[in-house]
Each structure stands twice: as structure tokens, then as C-alpha cells.
């Protein structure tokens, strides 16, 4: 594997994660619990899709085959996607979406803080811009954790169930492979083990302040860095890629 190939895979992974997370959030459009939150969730979706566009555009350049960001988003199959397993999980109820957004935002907050110092200028630039957005996502999701956790018996139960269900997908966020190791030496990629401690501390604080029990670290799902996914990604792609698959290269 050359440095160029490793960088391509690394940037692709960051882009895929934002794309799939953005798509899942966009599923809330017109279905939010109140109009205000409907807009808030779709704003988060747009932030993610904007980030995906920037990253996939850069990935396409690195790939050097004349592809565009749209080719990468709409013309790859399930096994060629490297988004985190957590991002592809169905939206579930509102508590599940909030719990998922909180865990992902906390992870991204530390990830992009570190990546804003990347030796790769494009990654560092995208990370610095993303960091502003992610700080807001994290605050928004954290505040909702407080409200649901300390709200009614039902809202607490729903948030607790969501955290329990999501916990086994947290391990996948921190897995590293050969690309990470190769690029970390060059100060381009980051050591995810280093941000794991920060993630654990902040997530535990938020959950404790929300009256939510912290689950035991048991069995952890794995696979996204190898392109192995849950059964849910295929369904996301079916909907997301429908137009390009049915009418290749359609323009309007």
C-alpha cells in the first residue's frame, strides 16, 4: 500500500461516515417531534452532508481516476463503504437518535480536534471547519440527553434503552488498521486510542448528569474498517442511490 492509497482510504472513511450519518439524520425531515427540532435535526444532516461532500471530493482527487464526489457516494456497493457501524443504524425513536448523535458527536469532537493539527493541509482545513459544527451538534445532543434522562420515567427509560443498545457499537469507532498506522507515523492520521480516554470520560459525565446508567463494556461489534457492515447499510444505500442506479448519470 502506498501513502497515496492509504490517504485515499482514510479520507474515504471520514467522508462515508459523514454521508451515512447525514442520510440517517435526513430521515427525520418532516417527522421531528416539534417543528423546531425537525429543523435542528435536518440542519445537523446538512452539516454532515456538506462535510461528506468536501471529504469525498478530496478522496476522489486522491483516487486519481477522474471520479467526482457524487460517483463515490452513489456508485459504490456496500462492501466498499467504510462508515462507522453506528452511523448506519436505523434512526429508531427520538431518544435513540439523540443517544446516537451524542456518542458520535463526542467522538467526532475529539477526532476533529486532533485532526485539525494533521500534517495534511486539506484534512486539517476540513477538520477546523467541521469542529465548529460538531461542537454545536454535541451541545444540542447533550442538552437533549439531560432533558430526556431527567424528564419523565418513560423518557429516561427510552434513553437508557438506546444507550444500552448502542454501547456495543462504540468499539468500532476506535478500531485502527494499516492505513491508520501508516499515516499516523506521518502525523496525518491520529491515534484513536488516545482519544478513547477523552471519549469515555466525557460520555460518562454526560450520562451520569442525565441519570443514565453506564453500560458494562461487553461484546463489541466490529468490521466497518474492512467494509463489513450490519444488515442496515444495504437499505440505506438502496434508498440513497436509487436514482443513480435506476437512471445512471441522470441530469436535470
Amino acid at each position: 500500500m502506498t501513502k497515496q492509497e492509504a490517504l485515499y482510504k482514510y479520507v474515504l472513511r471520514l467522508g462515508d461516515h459523514a454521508l451515512i450519518q447525514g442520510h440517517r439524520l435526513s430521515e427525520w425531515c418532516s417527522k421531528g417531534p416539534i417543528l423546531e427540532e425537525d429543523l435542528a435535526l435536518t440542519n445537523l444532516a446538512l452539516d454532515n452532508i456538506g462535510r461528506a461532500q468536501a471529504l469525498l471530493k478530496y478522496a476522489a482527487e486522491l483516487q486519481g481516476l477522474g471520479n467526482t464526489e457524487d460517483d463515490l457516494a452513489y456508485k459504490r456497493g456496500e462492501r466498499e463503504f467504510y462508515n462507522s457501524l453506528m452511523s448506519e443504524l436505523p434512526t429508531g425513536d427520538f431518544a435513540f437518535t439523540i443517544a446516537k448523535q451524542m456518542l458520535i458527536s463526542v467522538f467526532e469532537y475529539f477526532q476533529f480536534t486532533a485532526l485539525s493539527h494533521s500534517a495534511d493541509e486539506t484534512i486539517a482545513g476540513i477538520a477546523a471547519k467541521t469542529l465548529k459544527e460538531v461542537r454545536y451538534h454535541m451541545m444540542h445532543a447533550r442538552d437533549w440527553c439531560y432533558r430526556l434522562g431527567k424528564g419523565t420515567e418513560e423518557s429516561n427509560r427510552r434513553l437508557q434503552n438506546a444507550i444500552n443498545e448502542l454501547w456495543m457499537f462504540t468499539g468500532d469507532l476506535f478500531e485502527m488498521n494499516d492505513e491508520d498506522k501508516m499515516l499516523e507515523v506521518l502525523d496525518i492520521a491520529i491515534d484513536l486510542n488516545e482519544i478513547k480516554t477523552q471519549f469515555d470520560t466525557l460520555v460518562q459525565t454526560i450520562l451520569r448528569e442525565s441519570d443514565i446508567r453506564i453500560p458494562e463494556n461487553g461484546y463489541m461489534q466490529t468490521g466497518s474498517k474492512k467494509g463489513i457492515h450490519t444488515e442496515h447499510l444495504g437499505h440505506v444505500l438502496t434508498e440513497m442511490q436509487y436514482l443513480q442506479r435506476a437512471y445512471p448519470d441522470a441530469t436535470w
Binding site: L35, E36, L39, A40, D143
Partner: peptide, 20 residues
């Protein structure tokens, strides 16, 4: 105007609706 249950939510909802 916006609907919200507390100050933090009111600010966030206002930001999301009126400053996009």
C-alpha cells in the same frame, strides 16, 4: 418566535430556525 422548554433550547431553536 420559537417553542422551547428552557433557555438553552430556546437559543438553540432560534439559532436553527432564524440564522441558517
Amino acid at each position: 418566535s420559537v417553542h422551547a422548554s428552557d433557555e438553552a433550547m430556546a437559543l438553540q431553536n432560534a439559532r436553527d430556525i432564524y440564522t441558517r
